[in-house]
Amino acid sequence: MEQMITAVMSLAAIGSGLGVVLGVAARKFAVEGDSRVEEIVAMLPAANCGQCGFPGCEGAAQAIVEGEASPTCCPPGGKVVALAIAGHLGITLGDDDMEEAPKIAVIEDAICIGCTKCYRLCPSDAIVGAMKQLHGVFAEACTGCNQCADKCPTGAITMQPLPATAGTWVMPKPVMAA
C-alpha cells in the first residue's frame, strides 16, 4: 500500500513539476506566428500598394515566406528589397526576374487639374499640392507604388524611370565573349 502511495505521489510530483516548467516555457518562449514574416515586413517599403496581388505588405511577406511569391514581387522595393529578402531567406534570384531601374511618379503639368486625389492617397507623403493648384512629386520620397496613377482622373500621372545623372550613373557590365 505504502509503495503504491509513494509511486503515485512521486509521479504526481514529477508530472506537476514538468507541467509548471512547460507552462512557464510556453509563456516565455511563445512564438506568435512565423517570425520571418515580421522580418520581411520590416524590409518591404510599407506602401501597402497591392501591386504584388496580396493584401498589403504583410500579405506579401506571408506569401514570400510560404514560397508562394518571389521576393521580386514588390515593384516599389525593386532590386534592392528583392536582394535583401532573398539574402535573408537564402533564396537565389535569377538574373532575368529582376526589376529594371526603379520608377517614380511624374505629373504631366498640362493635364493636372489640382484635384488633390493623389496627394491624399500617397502613402509616403511624396506628393505636394493644394486644391486647383499644380501638384508636384518629391522624387526622393516616391516609391513608384502606382496608387496615385490609378486614381488620377485625367491620367496626368505616369511611372517613369529615374533620370540618370552623373551622380547615380553606374559603369555598365562588360559584355563577355562566350
Binding site: 506602401a47 534592392v80 507623403d125 550613373w169
Partner: peptide, 25 residues
C-alpha cells in the same frame, strides 16, 4: 568599376527606401 558602382547604387537605394519607410510610418 561596374561592381562598385552597382553596390553603391544599391546602398543609396536602400537608404532612400528606409527614409520612405519612415515617411510612410
Amino acid at each position: 568599376a561596374h561592381a562598385r558602382g552597382e553596390l553603391m547604387a544599391r546602398e543609396r537605394e536602400r537608404k532612400r527606401l528606409d527614409e520612405v519607410r519612415e515617411l510612410t510610418e
